[in-house]
Each structure stands twice: as structure tokens, then as C-alpha cells.
Design a protein around this nucleic acid. Structure first.
Lengths: 109, 109
DNA sequence: ATTATTGTTCGATGGTTGTCAAACAATGGG
DNA sequence: CCCATTGTTTGACAACCATCGAACAATAAT
């Protein structure tokens, strides 16, 4: 059994606002973010537990996009992978952005 | 000389958050929004006065996209067309969204 | 009338990207 | 060992879309 690893993510300073915005403009990725934002209890989710209307390869692609946009932190454990939304870090760099986007798209969107 | 018309725009209630988000995720359109947000004095601009790194046909296309996303109000006068950012209306429907997006993309983006 | 200005529309094109299936890699369990 | 689980990668494909040039429409100016 492989030992659990800590979360890793890209450097905060390299996060680009346009990239984040573009990442959020896809409905599947927005749904990922929404589910991660909703699990305030455990704060992270196993990739496979995020329910999406696409195949796992597509889901993997979107998770990669979000990770490379700097929005997710990830941790591997065994064959599984856990991801977490970088709420505080995102809010520090882009104040109010995540909340307003989630609120804006919550309305019939 | 044709008489000046009042501003027109699409219904506030039909504005979709995802559509707005997608509209903002293009650099040219974001630049349009930024220039319109910056002209607080006159509050509106003639389309041709918005300086963009694209041809006028492309600019027209982007302005149409922003208009149909509900973000712009427009007014025709002669052969000219004036556009205005619907700041207050957008902020009423999507509180904080526009400001946070403009702030997020202002940083090196 | 003729010409200039302003913006839209059309057709074409190239790039981006969301999507899937299939193959692959890595780990865990029996 | 063998097989199941989990996620990634690759290749292919289709859809979307930003872009341009050229043609067009509408108004203004001379």
C-alpha cells in the first residue's frame, strides 16, 4: 500500500485571470467547481465521485484544465486521486470572483 | 438628419449567467467592456471609437455578442452607433460579477 | 447625384476544444 | 499471479468560433 501524499498545486502567482475565467466558462467545469464548492465538510472529493454527464476521459481532461488554471489542488492515494477547490487562495488573488460567478450561474444556469 | 434614438437592449430577465461568463472570456470582448467601463464621464462610446486589434467586421461581431448577452445597450444616430455598458443592471442581476472580473483580469491579463 | 463615413452581413478559413472510445499505467485485492 | 479499480493519454472527429476580406446598407456631406 502506497502512503498518502499531500496536496499539490501550481504556484499562486502564475495564475492568470483570463485563464480562470475561461476555465469557468465551460458548463462541465463549472459543475465540477460547484460540487467541490459544495462539499464544505470534507473539503475534497475523489475524482470519480464527481458526477458528470461525460465519460471519465472527458472528466479527466476538464479536471486537468482546472488544475492547470490553478483552481484545484490534488492529492494521489493509491489508484485514486482527490481534488480540492482552492477557495481561500483564489479569493485572495481574485477577491469575490468565485462567489460572484457561482451566484451568477446558479440562477437558471 | 435622422433624429437620435434612445437606448435599447434585451430584457434583463432573459440574461443568462453562463452566456455572460462566456462573453467575458474572450480578450477582445473583455477589452470592449473595459473601455466602456472606463468612460464613466460620457457613459457611452461610438463603436468606431473603441480601439481594438481587429478589423471592424470582427469588432462588430463581438459587439453583437455582448449585446445579445445583455451586457450592452445601444443607440443609433445617423450612420453611427453608440454603445453603453449596462453596469447597474448587470450588477443588480449578478452582484459583484463585473467588478470582480474586471479586477481579476486587470492583473497582467 | 456622387462620394464618404459607419457599421452589418456573408462566405471562407484556420485554430481551438469538447467529446468519445480504446489503449495504457498504476495500484490494490484475491 | 490475475483481475478489478481508477484515472490518464492518445487519436480521431465534430462543433464552435474568432478572424478576415469583400460586398452591402444606410445616412451624411458636398
Amino acid at each position: 500500500m502506497k502512503s498518502p501524499e499531500t496536496f499539490h498545486s501550481i504556484d499562486l502567482d502564475t495564475i492568470d485571470g483570463m485563464t480562470v475565467l475561461h476555465a469557468l466558462s465551460d458548463p462541465v467545469r463549472l459543475e465540477i467547481v460547484r460540487q467541490l464548492a459544495g462539499c464544505s465538510g470534507s473539503s475534497d472529493l475523489k475524482c470519480g465521485q464527481i458526477e458528470l454527464p461525460v465519460t471519465k476521459s472527458t472528466a479527466s481532461h476538464h479536471l486537468k484544465t482546472l488544475y492547470e488554471a490553478g483552481m484545484l489542488a490534488a492529492r494521489e492515494q493509491g489508484t485514486s486521486k482527490y481534488v480540492r477547490l482552492r477557495r481561500d487562495e483564489l479569493d485572495e488573488r481574485f477577491p469575490g470572483l468565485l462567489d460572484s460567478v457561482l451566484r451568477a450561474t446558479a440562477i437558471a444556469g
